[in-house]
């Protein structure tokens, strides 16, 4: 069980949340200008990082806000949470 610190609601059990995968993958500003490889990279490729990981979570059963969690993927330790727009 992960205790996830929702920036709006405080620490809650993980079954209230939805995982949204790796954070910081902005949608390309002009998709039409990309090659197929570049588009595929945006669409499909993820880092699957070992250790420190910035990822998206949504407090689905609470405030329904998306935010960013920093988690160690080895120990599952949660290192912090931030809201979109705040500097990391």
């Amino acid at each position: 069980m992960l205790l996830i610190p929702c920036p709006w609601c405080g620490p809650r059990e993980d079954d209230e949340f939805t995982f949204g995968g790796e954070a910081d993958i902005p949608r390309p500003a002009d998709p039409a200008a990309l090659t197929d490889e570049q588009w595929a990279d945006y669409l499909f490729m993820r880092d699957n990082r070992r250790g420190h990981h910035r990822e998206q979570w949504c407090h689905t059963a609470g405030c329904r806000r998306w935010f960013i969690v920093e988690r160690d993927t080895v120990t599952n330790e949660i290192l912090g949470a931030s809201i979109y727009g705040d500097s990391p």
């Binding site: 939805t18 949204g20 329904r64 998306w66 979109y84």
Partner: peptide, 13 residues
Amino acid sequence: LAWLEQWLQTEWT
């Protein structure tokens, strides 16, 4: 709804 919210909250803020 979840799909639309995700785009609004994370991409098109």
